[in-house]
Design a binder for these strands. Structure first.
Ligand code: FES
Ligand code: FES
Lengths: 132, 132
DNA sequence: TGTTAATGATACCATATTAGTATCATTTGT
DNA sequence: ACAAATGATACTAATATGGTATCATTAACA
């Protein structure tokens, strides 16, 4: 079971890197630094741009930079962008099939696990990842 | 993100049902009760048999029954059978790429989330799912 | 002792998701 | 004009998931 996919992973790498750079960062730089396939990296940055996490500048001398402070870039948000809403997605059993009385125990337990997970996840930001 | 797959889900349904039955249960019965595709259910039960969670009896009048007490059938174990080892599978970033100093923050955080999850998961048994 | 109703084993197929490529268009500094 | 960057979008490949199909084996029972 994967918590994060490569999309998310690469995106976080890129964001961490960019949070330590002053000016613009190009795809080329990131590809070099992070050893990620170039077109894939592009796609990811373009997506982050669409989602207003980065801003981009075209043309020669262009590149990307963070649009918002690393403190405000939440990992859950990045996950949401690349993996859809974060959660544990219930189960396939419906209440009528489930343990007697229509009260679904498993569902509740999954919710609870999910809550615990989210609680911890929500505290992770790019800033929190970068500080040694 | 899915915590459990259909395999696991159907398996749990079947186990819950069987924990309430005295004698042998056939695939036919389960298919009827739980509305699951027959060959898929078979495959699942055969797997549970291989993993010593069920025992099986061939021939006319045959079927399956629990091999161990519902109290000792842990959900994590069922997940492991059908989904592989339960965990959050780290990330793809390696320490050298990761946040400075080689200390990988994200990795630790994921571990921590995983621990919380496992702690709760490990308490769930078939028995705990069945008791209203 | 042959038929039938069950599981065992295994190979195959379909669909969805993830991961990644390829291409062409647009912008901008020199 | 050209080169160096991103924007948009369509396509392909690999993997995981969710099943089917088939034949072999076993055992009750008429
Ligand atoms: S509704 Fe999901 S286990 Fe019951
Ligand atoms: S080793 Fe996984 S995020 Fe660093």
């Amino acid at each position: 079971m994967k918590l994060i996919t490569r999309n998310t992973d690469y995106a976080l790498r890129a964001l961490c890197y960019m949070s330590k750079q002053e000016g613009l960062v190009t795809v080329g730089q990131l590809v070099q630094k992070l050893d990620v396939p170039r077109p894939f990296m592009r796609k990811i940055l373009q997506q982050l741009n669409k989602d207003k996490i980065l801003e981009s500048y075209k043309g020669q001398g262009g590149g990307f930079k963070l649009k918002i402070s690393p403190k405000k870039i939440y990992m859950v948000e990045i996950m949401r962008v690349f993996q859809g809403p974060v959660g544990l997605n219930g189960c396939f059993l419906k209440k009528d099939v489930c343990p007697n009385k229509g009260k679904c125990v498993l569902r509740k337990k999954i919710r609870s696990i999910e809550e615990g997970m989210l609680e911890q996840l929500r505290e992770i930001t790019v800033a929190s990842l970068v500080q040694h």
